[in-house]
Amino acid sequence: MQGKWINRLLLMPATAWFLVMLVLPLVVVAIFSFGERGAAGGYVPAFTLDQYLNLPARFTAFKNTLLLAPAGTLAALLIAYPLAYFLAVRASPKWKTILLVMVIVPFWTSILIRTYAWIFILGGRGIPTLLEFIGIEGVRLINTPFAVLVGIVYGYLPLMVFPIYVSLEKLDKRLLEASADLGSPPLRTFRQVTLPLSIPGIATGCMLVFILLMGEFLIPALLGGGKVFFIGNALVDLFLQSRNWAYGSAVAATLVIIMLVTVTLYMKLVARVGEQREDVSIL
């Protein structure tokens, strides 16, 4: 009896938080999405599917998000993995600490400032000027999907590095020796032992980055020059400019549904791997 009470007490703050901060807003969004825009903006109660029928008007924003979020996740993975590997496996203990701190340090400043720096790096007086020195002219980087991708990878890299680093760090180095001992050269050992054993880290990192990217709006706004539009940007516009709460809610609800579906599929995939493995759980 007493144990039950303690359990309830322990779960109470989280439950309250969950209900008020997550469930309630979602309910409001769901209700609004069937309403209409007021004459001067805002929301007018109604029951109509018009907002959902109008979704194709944001097709490009959905498309950009659904292309660049996975692309950004993949690019971050490809860059983060070797870095995490170096940190976890190859760096000497002294350097490891220094390098890890260097990975974290950017987090001490806001993503906004760091992304703003990229405006200058990718802008006309940044990399394109450097390229001109070596004879490559007319390269334009800023305000392109590529610039957004660069910003995304830069901004989210640490979120990818750390889970992978942790899974590689706890990897038993004797397993690598065992593999070599059984006749496997280093590259094959990596493919057959290191990589599969770092899947938990990869799965966590990809999940974190992907989910956050689906709602991203700052980086496309800054590095896309308003031309590379994510769903997040569409939502900012709908609520802060055109004040179309009903339509904005429909777009938001759709994003939530897309995320739920994607994440569920992903969880299933990870769970299937997890069935075979003790070290891979759902996240």
Binding site: R174, A178, D279
Partner: peptide, 22 residues
């Protein structure tokens, strides 16, 4: 000669069995 080219095999102290394989 690297380990993977030697005709010897080792039983490791804590076995070092691959946890991801049956």
């Amino acid at each position: 000669t690297p380990p993977y080219k030697r005709p010897v095999n080792m039983v490791f102290q804590h076995y070092a069995l691959f946890p991801h394989l049956n």
